[in-house]
Design a protein around this nucleic acid. Structure first.
Lengths: 187, 187, 187, 187
DNA sequence: GATGAATGAGAATTCATTCAT
DNA sequence: GATGAATGAATTCTCATTCAT
């Protein structure tokens, strides 16, 4: 049997995504996780601590995923392509985590501190963007705008894929998608 | 003195944006709106009816705003530019409405029916996109992907502007932003 | 039917005396008072506010009782006798209030502010004590010691009377009791 | 390192005095005593057993202290003086115990059985009072009234000393205090 | 003896909603 | 239309106690 703490975290993730934070009673989390309510509060002092822990613990996994197989000797475009594929593959294979991030990253339930730690999520991409601007490959615009727009575009593509997950294996389709992402950025 | 019903709607919008739906008690809305709790429920049978009404009543304003000054005889790019400027100007001048839409458009508090009505928000843009594809001006990709990506890119740009509202008057900046939006779409 | 707020206060007084503060759930107070739990919290924001209100509202009654029929032209001893009889009569006829004061005056449930207001309880007696010292009738000792000791002696006598309430009508007995009280004080 | 059982008792005494019985969780006692929660329940089957044990174990010490140096051949007044000094000295040097007794002697947490055992506390004094009445030295009043009043007066004096502990070494002051105590009793 | 994770009944408090005025 | 006291189910959190290690 899995660790009870872990079981609570996984159940909470699922239920928060399905119902929302406030619409998910701690009693429901405990019940579905197969533990007593007291156990939940034994591991997480408050409901808020639970969601913040959830945010931070799952963030790690995502960061790892995004940078996988990005090789230093690749061209910039290749690096972006790899990150792009990492991102959409991760989203498709971890839909709950993906929904969790899009719903809660900017919600008031996640404390400012936690959110700031979580922002490192796109640190890798930010570095790539800066590198591209310095080498005159990407658009010469304020880096902040570039970051926000890149993220928005990626989110849009991901949204579509979440609703049409079969497309993830259609290489022609994903390459078209990547070309949209790339065109936003390239100078 | 303003109509009490209207006062309730405006207060609710503000508080829902600030605190979230579930974290905003109806008693707080009533108090801040300067009416009795009974009055709120006199005008809106339930709290859900209140937020759905809010969604629909404010949607109208947005739709009007997006299509303003889009002339039939303009080039497609000009039309897109106009819609783009309409969208970012509206967001900057109605930040609460903008936050309200980004928070609640896909939340479970908005009933499916209401949401579908609201989707007409981007109906204009969808028509433009189709027109552009038919004329080989835009990328030849599934229309759904194009819609989602366009919306994502626009949201990203808007996010940035919401945090740097002074840029809205910097024409060079907004043109750079538009070029990102346009590059996503154009073939 | 009595005012619900008043009904809650009276029920709470009785139950706090019987069971103690922490051993009296608000649900029990509400039930016994014949109101919904929500009603209790409608009138008193917290359980602590309830007990503090109780303390202050009942204090008034006591203060009035202690100074009844104390005439300016009486001798000092007569004044003390009158206050003494007022005190023991009040205790016997309001046993719940009396128990409430002896249990909660120095408990942590009563906030410091509330307690200080309540200390005015013995203000009358304090004035009489000072007067007696100035006229060389009472012991020439620190006033603080005199106050505390007088209160202790009176409490002791009251304790005995609470357990033998029939004695209250035995004038010979009460005069003996008063002589103990007086002997503590007189020089 | 001290015995864990003893450590628990001492910590509990301190915390019960500071916060009250119900406001002191067993978990807090265990934590502050540096033991596991299980350990507390290994030594005391229930929380009630803990406080009752506390009451009885510390009572012994007090009883010993009160009768110290009371010699058979002394005059009655000398005996009372000795007991009086023993009482106030003990209170000053064991403030937590003193508070514990004044708070819990008559509380419902101490079982009737325990309380009765504890009443022996004033057994010595009761014997002296009876002796004094038989010899026509003390007031000829019901013994119960005498006991309660004597205890009340002593408590009053002790209360004052607890807040002005420096006075304990002022012999003139303590003799004045004793004279109040004595005047209550003597015929 | 000692540990501390696990338990679940029970506590204070909240809040959408009703209804008599 | 407007009011706000009253409602009670639902929620978060507490805490004495158990038990496997």
């Amino acid at each position: 049997m899995k660790d009870k703490r872990q079981q609570i975290l996984e159940t909470a993730l699922k239920l928060f995504v399905e119902n929302g934070f406030h619409a998910t009673p701690t009693s429901m989390i405990a019940k579905e996780a197969g533990v007593a309510t007291g156990t939940l509060f034994h591991h997480f002092k408050t409901k808020e601590e639970l969601i913040n822990t959830l945010y931070l613990e799952t963030k790690e996994i995502l960061i790892q995923a995004l940078t996988k197989q990005v090789n230093e000797q690749d061209t910039l475009k290749s690096k972006f392509r790899q990150v792009f594929y990492n991102a959409i593959n991760w989203a498709i294979s971890h839909p709950d985590h993906q929904f969790f991030y899009s719903q809660y990253s900017y919600s008031p339930f996640i404390s400012t501190l936690t959110r700031e730690l979580g922002l490192q999520r796109f640190h890798v991409i930010q570095e790539l963007l800066k590198e591209g601007q310095e080498n005159d490959i990407l658009k010469a615009i304020p880096i902040g705008l570039m970051i926000d727009t890149a993220q928005g575009t990626l989110d849009g593509i991901t949204n579509y894929l979440m609703e049409h997950p079969e497309k993830i294996d259609d290489r022609e389709f994903t390459e078209q998608a990547f070309s949209m992402f790339w065109d936003v950025l390239k100078g």
